[in-house]
Simulated assay, not measured.
Amino acid sequence: MTRKKRSRKAGSEGPAQYDDRTPSQSDNEGRLQKKLKKRKGLKAGSRHSDAKAAAARKAAAQKDPRHGSKKAIPLIVEQKPHPKSAQAKKARRLSAEQELEMLENDAQLNVLLDRIENGESLGAGLQSYVDEKLDRIEALMSQLGLLDDDELEDEKQPAKPSKRSDDDLLAAFENLDMDQE
């Protein structure tokens, strides 16, 4: 075997080249390259895992990637009246039917009316509240035509006791024709 004499001059091989990687880094890279070359075939795992992964990928693809609100934006802008105009005041005003329904469903008024029916006396403030609401209900009912004038007259006049005897009432009942329409 021949011996090659070393010299200080840069030879035909060129100057020495230095690598910044440490030996452990180069070992890791080598292992990864070997692993990639060695690997063949399908992934290890359950035969059902593929279906789950495919379903997850499909769901991710269907999801809308856009952010923000999905609320529909009207293409035609409706003109709203100025808040202090007469049109706006008319729009804010409830219809008579809606107001009557609200008054009939008023929980506080119902409780106070129940207390009055039980014989309790209310204070002046509560009594004025009840009177005001009942007057408004009566006005709305007459406006809507739900309140007959006969009922108003009957309420104003006390009921007169009937002077008819029991025999007269029985005779009137027996003579009553039920087939009338």
Rank of each mutant, 00 (worst) to 15 (best):
M1Y: 07
T2E: 12
K5G: 06
S7K: 04
S7I: 12
S7P: 04
R8M: 08
A10F: 14
A10W: 14
G11M: 02
S12G: 12
S12C: 10
G14E: 02
Y18R: 14
D19L: 06
D20M: 09
R21N: 12
T22M: 05
P23K: 05
D27P: 03
N28Y: 15
R31M: 07
K37Y: 04
K38I: 09
K40D: 05
G41M: 00
A44D: 09
A44R: 14
A44I: 10
G45C: 08
S46G: 12
D50W: 01
A51L: 05
K52S: 11
K52T: 09
A53P: 01
A60G: 05
A60T: 07
A61T: 11
Q62L: 14
Q62V: 11
K63W: 02
K63E: 03
D64S: 15
P65E: 09
R66C: 09
G68S: 04
A72F: 07
I76Q: 10
Q79M: 11
P81E: 03
H82F: 11
P83G: 09
K90S: 07
L94M: 15
L94C: 06
L94E: 06
L94A: 11
L94D: 02
S95M: 11
Q98A: 13
L100R: 01
E101P: 00
L103Y: 03
L103F: 05
L103E: 01
E104C: 09
N105R: 15
A107M: 10
A107E: 12
N110F: 05
L112C: 03
L113V: 06
R115M: 13
R115K: 12
I116V: 15
I116C: 02
I116L: 15
G119K: 02
G119P: 00
G123S: 07
A124S: 12
A124L: 05
Q127A: 13
V130A: 01
D131C: 03
E132P: 00
E132Q: 13
K133A: 00
A139E: 04
M141S: 06
Q143F: 08
Q143E: 14
L146T: 00
L147H: 01
D148G: 11
D149C: 03
D149V: 02
E151H: 08
L152W: 02
E155Q: 12
E155C: 02
P161W: 08
P161S: 12
S165T: 09
S165M: 09
D166M: 08
D167H: 11
L170K: 13
A171W: 03
A171K: 02
A171F: 04
M178S: 06
